[in-house]
Design a protein around this nucleic acid. Structure first.
Length: 597
RNA sequence: GGUUCCGUAGCUCAGUUGGAUAGAGCAACAGCCUUCUAAGCUGUGGGUCAUUGGUUCGAAUCCAAUCGGAAUCACCA
């Protein structure tokens, strides 16, 4: 179905052409805004762009156009010209017909399947420590963008590229070997990712102590950092791992296994899922053949010591290393190979990387290199860059113990939801299981909404002391509106039977009713916009505004005590559709909405 | 120094391809529950849209410069 704004655009263009046959005005030339609340009307056509060309005053042009539209089309019932703006009032029966047709139309706002696959890589954790609050933003963003794209008709592959190898894991391994005495998640009852993370912290403590000792012996800081035994052991471990040492390999597998068990618990708690896992231990050697090809094509060059580079100075960037002098690859090389692998696996039209903005440069270079190499995946590479989550004291540093742990945060939000529900005295009539589920819905909803409501690009500061609110621009607000509507619908069981008797043409709408309907009508455009911008915050804002307009309506107008059955049916229709659109919008954010709260 | 991003109310943020007197939430203050869930609603106060210039009928939005902040520019990942 076409949107109302697009319909108005077309009708206005027709009217323009009828009045001024030579004007050549097309629907795309016409700017349409929502009419500001202080004026009467629903949508507004901006007249300024045409006055010069048509040699008309804004007032005269508005009058002619308004008269023609209102006289010639039942869609419009009134117009008003103020300054250079033509405010049009849309017929009430249009909106009533709209809500009657779509109030339980699951296809409304869902876009037809496209023959295109998009991969969304997100989460991509390191396996040496548990997830922290900052990672949550990544996870929620990636998951939500995937769902938004699905709703827009794309085939989506959610991918997780697990960073399961490298010096950071070796650090945890060394510390575990030195200090753990064979303890495991089972023996300690500690969640696997946390256990491994504890030894990562332990490594850094021991490392620091050794550096201090060495500098006390007269070494420089730099020497001490290099020579500290524990660091040397970690590096030795990495060499052994790369050589395929069976003992090192089996410990690595064991500890990674603990971490995966831990991650799975967290992912499950958050409702996150993946269609495809990639592991860096499988992909870290990829990309070398691309370097070879690039050398042959003369796109890359070799320095005297044998290292391979690409010159990006013409693009305003630097020279970038792709192969070390000893022939080993670097991070970029690996990412080149992985980009190609992903493309070959799924023939994706687009490949989205949900990665923090600290890697903007890296991603810019990756795309550029692939373009220069003429790889077919190159143009589809899209970096969904997001700002880091910081504490009032600055960035979270796991080495300094300033991280807000994801699991702790989840638990805290759920208990906050519990405390609020209990203090509001809203636990009556629920079983214990229902309450548990409700606290999760509210707590996790608040957490997800908090991290998704801001445009991804912007960095955010999270103040744990102030915690996360459950009032105002929050998931709770929207969930509450949904629950209230459900309660009303329940009290009006059988209301749908009266829809056939509804007199569409003879039912004037109140301003607050129309405001809701205007929002509902815009839903498909919002879903499309969120996909175009890869931006879930669009949905947060939309759901909030919709809930807000329902609340205002709900406060002023009674549904049960509506003036007559006709009005009552209309109100139930729009309440019902509001609930279902809220549910669908929140669904794309990964947030559930309760029927009671 | 190069590249990229950000700067809107005390705080956190919206603000569509340029359009009317720049909007929400939080915080503050004042009201609204014998009537469908008050986790709600209504109202008040609060702004040099970082600054300056330009483009135009019109700029928070586009362009340039300046100021302030962030990330990054490793034979690390």
């Amino acid at each position: 179905m076409t949107s109302l704004t697009s319909t108005i655009r077309h009708k206005a263009a027709e009217a323009f052409l009828a009045l001024f046959p030579d004007s050549g005005i097309t629907p795309e030339d016409i700017t349409i805004n929502e009419t500001k609340p202080e004026f009467t009307g629903d949508y507004t056509i901006v007249l300024f762009p045409f006055i010069k060309k048509l040699r008309q005053s804004p007032e005269a042009l508005g009058e002619q156009l308004g008269q023609r539209l209102v006289a010639g089309d039942p869609l419009f019932t009134a117009y008003e010209v103020i300054k250079g703006f033509l405010n049009l009032t849309v017929q009430d029966s249009y909106f009533i017909g709209f809500v009657k047709d779509h109030y339980k139309d699951a296809g409304f706002g869902k876009h037809a399947p496209k023959d295109a696959a998009i991969m969304v890589e997100y989460s991509s954790p390191n396996t040496n420590k548990p997830l922290h609050f900052g990672h949550l933003r990544n996870n929620f963003l990636g998951w939500s963008v995937s769902e938004i794209l699905k709703e827009n008709g794309y085939r989506v592959i959610k991918a997780n590229l697990v960073n399961d190898r490298g010096i950071h894991i070796c650090k945890s391994m060394i510390a575990w070997m030195r200090y753990a005495n064979g303890t495991t998640p089972e023996s300690t009852g500690i969640k696997g990712d946390h256990l491994v993370g504890d030894y990562y912290v332990k490594f850094n403590d021991a490392y620091k102590a050794e550096i201090a000792e060495l500098t006390a012996q007269g070494k420089t800081q730099e020497e001490a950092e290099k020579e500290a035994p524990i660091m040397q052991e970690a590096q030795e471990l990495l060499r052994k791992w790369e050589a395929g040492d069976p003992e090192v390999y089996s410990l690595w597998k064991k500890m990674n296994g603990w971490v995966y068990e831990g991650f799975d618990i967290t992912y499950k708690a958050l409702g996150l899922d993946f269609d495809k896992y990639y592991y860096e231990s499988d992909t870290y050697l990829l990309g070398k053949h691309l370097v070879e090809e690039g050398l042959q094509k003369g796109i890359l060059f070799k320095k005297e010591n044998g290292s391979v580079w690409i010159d990006l100075t013409e693009d305003g960037l630097d020279e970038k290393l792709l192969l070390r002098a000893d022939g080993t690859s670097v991070y970029m090389t690996q990412d080149m190979g992985t980009a190609q692998l992903k493309y070959n696996d799924y023939h994706t039209q687009k490949s989205i990387y949900v990665i923090a903005d600290e890697q903007n440069y890296h991603m810019q270079v990756l795309r550029l290199i692939m373009q220069k190499l003429g790889e077919p995946c190159a143009d589809g590479i899209y970096h969904l860059s997001y700002g880091m989550v910081e504490l009032p004291s600055g960035r979270m540093k796991s080495r300094e113990g300033t991280v807000v742990d994801a699991d702790d945060m989840i638990a805290e939000m759920i208990s906050l939801a519990k405390a609020q529900t209990e203090s509001a005295g809203k636990t009556e009539g629920f079983t214990d299981e229902e309450l548990e589920a409700l606290y999760k819905t509210i707590g996790l909803g608040a957490l997800k909404f908090y991290l998704l409501r801001v445009e991804p690009r912007k960095k955010m500061i999270f103040n744990p002391a102030e915690s996360i609110d459950l009032h105002g621009f929050t998931a709770t607000f929207i969930q509450y509106a949904h629950a209230r509507i459900c309660s009303i619908l329940k009290k009006n069981e059988g209301w749908e039977d009266r829809i056939t008797a509804l007199d569409i043409s003879n039912q004037p709408l109140a301003t607050l009713e129309k405001a809701i309907l205007l929002h509902l009508e815009q839903y498909p455009q919002i879903v499309a916009q969120a996909a175009d911008e890869y931006n879930p915050s669009v949905l947060c804002n939309y759901a909030f505004k919709l809930a807000q307009s329902f609340n205002s309506f709900f406060d002023k107008h009674s549904i049960i005590r509506a003036e007559n059955d006709n009005i009552k049916t209309v109100r139930l229709l729009l309440a019902s559709m509001t609930a279902s659109i809220l549910k669908r919008t929140m669904g794309m954010l990964g947030i559930q909405v309760p029927e009671r709260m």
